[in-house]
């Protein structure tokens, strides 16, 4: 039965431990499995299941990618929020954007977000909490512009629902329980002169500050965020971290993404 369980649902630590004890470890395996389930229910920490993430962002996010049941906040860039949505959407998940009437669907499509699996609620009005909670029930990732003042109890209830459903929440602006805050700390456009040319590409420095206070940055080009080349290795800190993210969890601390 446990052989049939998807590999992603086994905790990484447990799996590594199990590979050592292999055949004699049936009991241990069962125990670890049950323990992880209990942890998943009791713990206020999100489960270790990861949603598919754009590799360059997976490299700087805590835990190596978007975690199911976690919230992330994006400080100042819709582009970055779209990049977060692009991973799950590309893997066939439903996405929802709530309370963002300025969200550009054309740009979203250029990130590889499938528009036929994207649901927009531009004006939820004063029912923001109910609508967001209802959406978290059915879609895998919700991008929303949270209201200025949200009661801590409401936020905790939403987080509980989030963990139970295994969805991810991305908020524009601060959010009390966010796993990490992503922001664009440097931006440099190419292609535009003084009165000549047009915008072609953008060099971005992205900083992810985890709730533990640790922050990581990645430098990358905008087209890279949109559609790869994700797997090729360029001599660039961001793409090195990309390669690491794909090789698995082992290289987590050896990654060249700079920690400050």
């Amino acid at each position: 039965m446990f052989q049939a369980a998807p590999a992603g649902s086994t905790p990484q630590g447990a799996r590594r431990a199990l590979s050592a004890v292999d055949h004699a470890g049936d009991k241990a395996r069962l125990k670890a499995e049950l323990q992880s389930k209990i942890n998943g229910m009791q713990n206020s920490r999100p489960s270790s299941r990861r949603l598919p993430t754009v590799p360059v962002l997976a490299g700087i996010l805590p835990g190596g990618g978007l975690q199911a049941g976690a919230a992330y906040s994006v400080a100042n860039s819709t582009t970055l929020a779209m990049a977060l949505l692009a991973g799950p959407s590309g893997a066939g998940a439903w996405c929802s954007v709530i309370g963002m009437p300025t969200f550009s669907v054309e740009a979203a499509a250029s990130f590889g977000i499938a528009l036929d699996r994207l649901v927009l609620v531009p004006h939820p009005g004063d029912q923001w909490l109910t609508v967001t909670a209802a959406m978290l029930d059915v879609v895998s990732i919700v991008l929303t512009c949270a209201p200025q003042h949200i009661a801590p109890s409401d936020a905790s209830r939403l987080m509980a629902r989030l963990r139970q459903r295994g969805a991810a929440l991305v908020t524009m602006g601060p959010w009390p329980h966010s796993e990490a805050t992503l922001s664009v700390t440097g931006s440099n456009w190419q292609g535009l002169g003084s009165g000549t040319g047009h915008l072609r590409s953008r060099r971005m420095r992205i900083t992810a500050r985890a709730s533990t206070g640790r922050s990581r940055t990645a430098d990358l080009w905008l087209p890279e965020l949109q559609h790869g080349p994700w797997s090729t290795s360029i001599s660039d800190p961001a793409s090195t971290s990309t390669a690491d993210a794909e090789s698995g969890q082992q290289g987590f601390f050896a990654r060249s993404a700079r920690a400050s």
């Binding site: 300025t102 969200f103 550009s104 054309e106 740009a107 915008l199 072609r200």
Partner: peptide, 8 residues
Amino acid sequence: PGPAPATV
């Protein structure tokens, strides 16, 4: 031309 703006 070029990349589409993210906020319209």
